[in-house]
Design a protein around this nucleic acid. Sequence first.
DNA 1: CCTCCCTAAGAAATCGATTACACCTCGATC
DNA 2: GATCGAGGTGTAATCGATTTCTTAGGGAGG
Lengths: 333, 333
Amino acid sequence: MANIKDVAERAGVSVATVSRVLNGRSPVAETRERVLAAVQELGYRPNNVARALRTARTGALGLIISDLTNPFFTELADAVEDEARSLGYSLVIGNAGERPAQQDDYIRTLLDRRIDGLLVSSAGTGSTMLREVVASGTPLVLLDRVVPGIDAPCVRADGRAALTELAGRLAALGRRRPAIIVAPAGTPTGEERLALFRAALAAHGLALPDERVGSTPDLQHTGGRRVMSAFLDLAEPPDAVLATDNLMALGAMDELRARGLRVPDDVALVVYDDVPWFTHTDPPLTAIAQPTRELGRAAVHTLLARIEGRPAESVLLPAHLVPRRSCGEPPAP
Amino acid sequence: MANIKDVAERAGVSVATVSRVLNGRSPVAETRERVLAAVQELGYRPNNVARALRTARTGALGLIISDLTNPFFTELADAVEDEARSLGYSLVIGNAGERPAQQDDYIRTLLDRRIDGLLVSSAGTGSTMLREVVASGTPLVLLDRVVPGIDAPCVRADGRAALTELAGRLAALGRRRPAIIVAPAGTPTGEERLALFRAALAAHGLALPDERVGSTPDLQHTGGRRVMSAFLDLAEPPDAVLATDNLMALGAMDELRARGLRVPDDVALVVYDDVPWFTHTDPPLTAIAQPTRELGRAAVHTLLARIEGRPAESVLLPAHLVPRRSCGEPPAP
DNA sequence: CCTCCCTAAGAAATCGATTACACCTCGATC
DNA sequence: GATCGAGGTGTAATCGATTTCTTAGGGAGG
């Protein structure tokens, strides 16, 4: 592949001049024409590796996504990618697969590649590499999930308003025994959603006792199913269940169907994260929709602020409730 | 961040020696210890940009995925990423979003970054950059979708056996009026699936007339719904429909539900690509499952063969039919 | 007509690694 | 005891760009 020297020779100028033409600095029209012609004829494209070495800027951002097969994170990644590209950055995606060790592995290779900045939706809270990222001075922004002890801005959604609205609706619909399926204790996201839901319910005089708080170590569909099964074996089974992740909701729904229970007649079901196919399930699922694309955009902007040395604050965007039939709404028109 | 020179100074050796220690070439035990100690103390990590410039190997592969929000491609990307990582490569993902222009844009930046090889599941067939990739000598492997006129190995699934089995089942179940929803004419994937399905049906004496071949320019859910609607308006509506993409199947299912038709009693529904949540729909959807993870793995291996100068052939892996209730199977135990 | 300044463009240093080549040392061989 | 070989290490070239420093040349002002 042609390099800058070839272009310089062909145009009869020095490499410095070629570089200046290509970077739009001060060359006179005639020289400029010759250089551009040579570039055209040789099909020259600057070598980004060499440029990155010299300028200490790679023009690439890293994104660690906790689980690429989870549609919520897929959409998030898609949004981040869109925004990064439109701002002239390319994106190196690493999929942690909810495994902290794999996440650390990825962060290491991204640092070695000298990406300009890093977005992390962290799998777990025990990542040792995250501290090293901070120590290395690489701009870091957390996405969707806070990590205790890591001093970096975090871009995520605030479920308070949506959960408040949800509690009101459940109360109005006469549901008396709400339940929640969360990630295991100790994960900030799960703790927070639990606390907010409990507070919102309390405002309507509804209790959320520990027996109706189910947690599952795997954030997967089997975990959701197991928890739902335990709920239904209670002396007083819940009449409304909030699943704090879309995969766990699937499992919960399967268990309900297997037992011949009807949604929402027997149990109302509400899901955290709105995924495109929730409108296609039977019944369509009421969801708490996070502003996914906005989160992705905001994360990129926050990261760019850090990269450019501007002040960067955490961002909290409101999630909102999308009522569908699974919690007793009338069918859509 | 510390560089190789800092390490050399601290260890009291030359940079060449440091490099040799780190690359496992021939240094004696005692020197080795000193170097490793210095690396440790300084927290040195080699700069991959500099290394890439010198060695002309970046250790990164590019993957252009036609639509990141389509679960089939997500799983494919996940499999590719897994395999690439386990072989010591990292992956730069570009999402074409089914837009050829965006795809070309991405291919360009990947070439500029001097990735070692490129995997492309192409959006459309009119990509001009794909020819340039071939011309540039960058190893290229096509994934899932062939592109006419591009001389590169292609890794994809062969639906013949699955479609043959499907035709047999439909015939055995007494379905007489099959239909198919495909991508617009001119796309090799769609053409092939249509031809194979038609041939398989013919072997059982079933015809697939043009009026029961619906195509839609957008590969999305609305397109699938529109086609299904047209089918149902026919004088003799189909009693079995094959949707050649999971999003189009969603739309088709919505239309059936909106008209109060039952699956599979009124119309059997079969979907190309098996997506995790097809088991959670009502009824569970019969699907033609492509060996997604194997495709991803094979694609990486084929690409590595090309990179290392070994001969690389196209790969065809068999898809298989996963019978579920939507085409009249008995409920799962 | 000379000087000063500004612009355009070339020469060379630089980024941080790898690696070809030269050199040195030490032990073995004749 | 001189020579040869091999293994370890240092010096310097190299990858392909950007950027600083330098120089040449041309126009304006005195």
